[in-house]
């Protein structure tokens, strides 16, 4: 849910004139409002023309530096076309993800019994799940303020959390995962601020968990969120 006047922030959004909190609200709003998203696209194009008016050639040495950097930089894969997929397909993905999460729980349980023997198997399962989660990300992902996506799949008393393309945080900052429910909000883990992609299996323990949320926190994490929520993914679609 976004505040009622969120729509009037499209101009400020296109100018990058919002703080993180407002930006999160607008991005959430845009996800549900194609007309607004189109307006933002147009206003950004206008902003780009304002930017072009400031054009100034960089020093020639920069070109070589950029092209050398490209040489050593891996490209992200394209986003899979997701909008057109039917809700049936989406349900299948979620069901399969839940099953895969169950496998990993089983594998992790086995690790506790016989760590060395089972570790490779667990890794294999986790890798499969990771691959699966990325396939799923296109259909059930939620935008993360600042970039990237968050997707979750619940299975029994566990939730599989998959975040992709998270922008690197500044030094000393980490991403923190939260579980919200009737009992409030509690931390379910801290993620390296430069990890980029994250796949985590989280135990919900108490019933009634409603959503997984992500914030950026000081290293080590916080007791409770101290910054605006960057992304929120409900556990029930």
């Amino acid at each position: 849910m976004t505040p009622p006047d969120t729509h009037t922030l499209t101009g400020a959004y296109a100018l990058d004139a919002l703080d993180d909190y407002d930006r999160g609200n607008v991005e959430q709003h845009l996800a549900d409002c194609p007309v607004c998203a189109e307006e933002v696209e147009q206003l950004r194009a206008v902003a780009a023309l304002l930017g072009a008016a400031a054009a100034e050639s960089p020093p020639p040495s920069l070109r070589a530096a950029v092209l050398a950097g490209v040489e050593g930089t891996r490209q992200l894969p394209p986003r899979l076309a997701s909008r057109a997929r039917s809700s049936r397909t989406r349900r299948l993905y979620v069901a399969a993800a839940s099953a895969a999460a169950g496998l990993v729980i089983a594998a992790f349980g086995a690790v506790a019994v016989d760590q060395h023997h089972q570790l490779d198997q667990a890794r294999g399962q986790a890798a499969n799940l990771g691959a699966f989660a990325s396939a799923m990300a296109g259909t059930t992902s939620h935008p993360v303020t600042g970039g990237g996506t968050l997707a979750v799949a619940a299975a029994g008393d566990h939730v599989f959390v998959s975040a992709r393309d998270l922008p690197a945080l500044s030094a000393g900052r980490v991403y923190q995962l939260w579980l919200t429910g009737p009992a409030g909000i509690r931390s379910v883990g801290v993620v390296d601020g430069r990890a980029g992609d994250v796949n985590r299996l989280v135990k919900t323990s108490t019933s009634g968990a409603v959503a997984v949320k992500v914030t950026a926190e000081p290293a080590g994490g916080s007791e409770q969120p101290t910054t605006p929520v960057l992304a929120s993914a409900p556990l029930r679609a």
Binding site: A48, G51, A52, A54, A55, E56, S57, P58, L62, R63, V66
Partner: peptide, 10 residues
């Protein structure tokens, strides 16, 4: 590059 650099520098 001129657009990007000019804008960033501004």
């Amino acid at each position: 590059s001129a657009r990007v650099f000019g804008l960033v520098r501004r």
